[in-house]
Design a protein around this nucleic acid. Structure first.
Lengths: 195, 195, 195, 195
DNA sequence: CATGAATGAGGGTTCATTCAT
DNA sequence: GATGAATGAACCCTCATTCAT
């Protein structure tokens, strides 16, 4: 090799540092200077690995989404559906729990504070909701999902999960399993017993 | 005695202008200059009515919360509980629908983009969740709420509502009623039918 | 008056400071900070009076061009033509001599160093050459200008004047009059005596 | 013994690339990165052949000057003087026409935009003017140049030529010959006919 | 009360230059 | 010699806040 090797480590270090700074300060108060410093590189080095400030945030978001996508299974209608639902909830929560602070950052950013992110984040949400919405439509055909507007149902499910994670002080195994159980139960039977 | 003092008008004009600018630009791109200009006052005048940039945003949030609080009824256990639940959902959605853009702004801002708001917004959420959580605990005593962690259940309910509103393209009367109906049904029986 | 008066003086001070800094440092090394400091105002104040860095330079150029335009007379064919030519040369040189350093800055900038200025400066040159070119064409009709490509002749005349000014160590009255005399003579009879 | 060393090739490639980039972007927007890339070498390699950014520009200027110097003949007073003058004008223009874009870049840069070049360029101009000025003084002794300040006359001649080349859209053979003819005529008899 | 000119800290981004490999 | 990753000084511009009038 004739030159210093391209440093995959540095990229990773920057991502890690960015996660920390972003979580601690929020996007607008996060300074490239600070990210670089924590990654142990000079400010200019940041720009060797990322085009601009927004890019590293987008990558963190994409990473989280990708990990969730990788973790959930496509529903197999011939197998135990309840188990699969619980598995997907569990898997999603597990991914979020891996880095709760980042999860909160990503889940908590929607439209409103910065037009720059509306795109990234909206795409994320629309994607997830659309995906789930279709799955629910399939479920209705199979008779395992109640009648109703699937987009709305998808929003209910996602919103319930998001808010629960967002409000969790921590997501250790016990808490996680509780969340899985209660959410699964909630999706199956609600919690109001008015009759 | 004079009629309405000019003050109240200017304050109101600033709030209205702020709402517009905030909705259009997001908090970080909203400029005091722009808010003042749209309110028809000088920039310095803003600071006669609000301490700083954050203050007007906080007031918008508080206003929304207050309107929701005013709209919902304390549950009367001797009356029709289902009707009251549906009423409260309906009333909440009605308030949010009054200014959907502002509602989305407020609902969509959680932690993450700006530490400055974490406080305001967190207080809001904690307040709502705590309130609902207590109500649910009461409900459990009355036997109208299923067993379970009431904070979690409260988060589920709030999250479902929030996400649904956040994703609604519009909230005309029809859509609103559909949301009320489906959410009420969802809270009562979930939507998964796995057995 | 209810507010601090808009400060025409500050604008003038900035222009003066910019002239100095530009002359001393050249456009690319001129710092807004420095211009503001010399004008005795804060950096931000600069942007109250000028849109960006380039704007103040453009204004200096425009000012010089305007002063030249104001100084030269439209040729009156019924009067003494030689006197008018000498007057226009003299007037132009007088304007340039008023601020020789600025004149050099402006005359010395053509294309090449910064695309941002190509426009401003090219427009200036094209304007002057076109104007002179037309005057020369009129002159040919009157029989006071030799046959030939008028654009080329205009470029010769302008170039001769520019280069002479650009190379002048100083332009005191004596030197100025010498320049006028010699240039007028040059335009009338050249300087090569080959026959 | 090897053939041309690789060095010479790289140096030449860098010079060629620099010319292109400089002409296209102007000095301040020309990036070493771009020059190196177009030359097909690494950025660091640039610094093996040139001390800094300015150096390659200086070399381009020197090259142009050298080619002009090589092209013009020392005046031989015993031969046809008019022919020699026309030859020198023709030869100079031919060199400039070889690379009109570079010629414009060099001719168009004087003082003003960047102090860094004032030296290089001033030296160039002073050199040329001094040389021509002496030649003109000789010419006065021989009686072939009119009386007058030779430095001024030299500036007139150089300026006329410079401006004409600077404004030429192209310098094909026909245009070139026209320029030679008209400039020679201009130097011999001016163009104003006021009597 | 009202104004809006003035302030200046703050930060994203660029790019010439260096130097370990 | 050649490379290109790393550096960090430099600088323009924004905008919340202040305060003299």
């Amino acid at each position: 090799m004739t030159t210093r090797t391209p440093d995959r480590d540095k990229r990773a270090a920057l991502l890690r540092a960015a996660r920390d700074v972003l979580v601690e300060e929020g996007y607008h108060h996060a300074k490239i200077d600070e990210i670089a410093a924590r990654a142990g590189v000079a400010k200019g080095t940041y720009y060797l690995y990322f085009d601009d400030k927004r890019a590293i945030f987008a990558e963190l978001v994409d990473g989280l989404v990708g990990r969730i996508e990788a973790a959930i299974v496509r529903v197999d209608e011939t197998a135990d559906l309840g188990a699969q639902v619980r598995h997907n909830i569990r898997a999603t929560i597990a991914v979020l729990a891996e880095d709760l602070a980042l999860a909160r950052l990503v889940l908590g950013v929607t439209r409103g504070l910065d037009a720059a992110f509306t795109d990234t984040i909206t795409r994320l949400h629309v994607g997830v909701i659309t995906l789930l919405s279709r799955t629910l439509a399939d479920g209705q055909t199979l008779g395992v999902v109640a009648a109703g507007d699937t987009e709305l149902l998808a929003a209910f499910a996602i919103g319930a999960l998001k808010e629960a994670v967002l409000r969790s002080a921590e997501l250790g195994p016990a808490r996680r399993e509780q969340l899985v159980t209660e959410l699964a139960k909630f999706l199956e039977e609600g919690f109001l017993r008015l009759r």
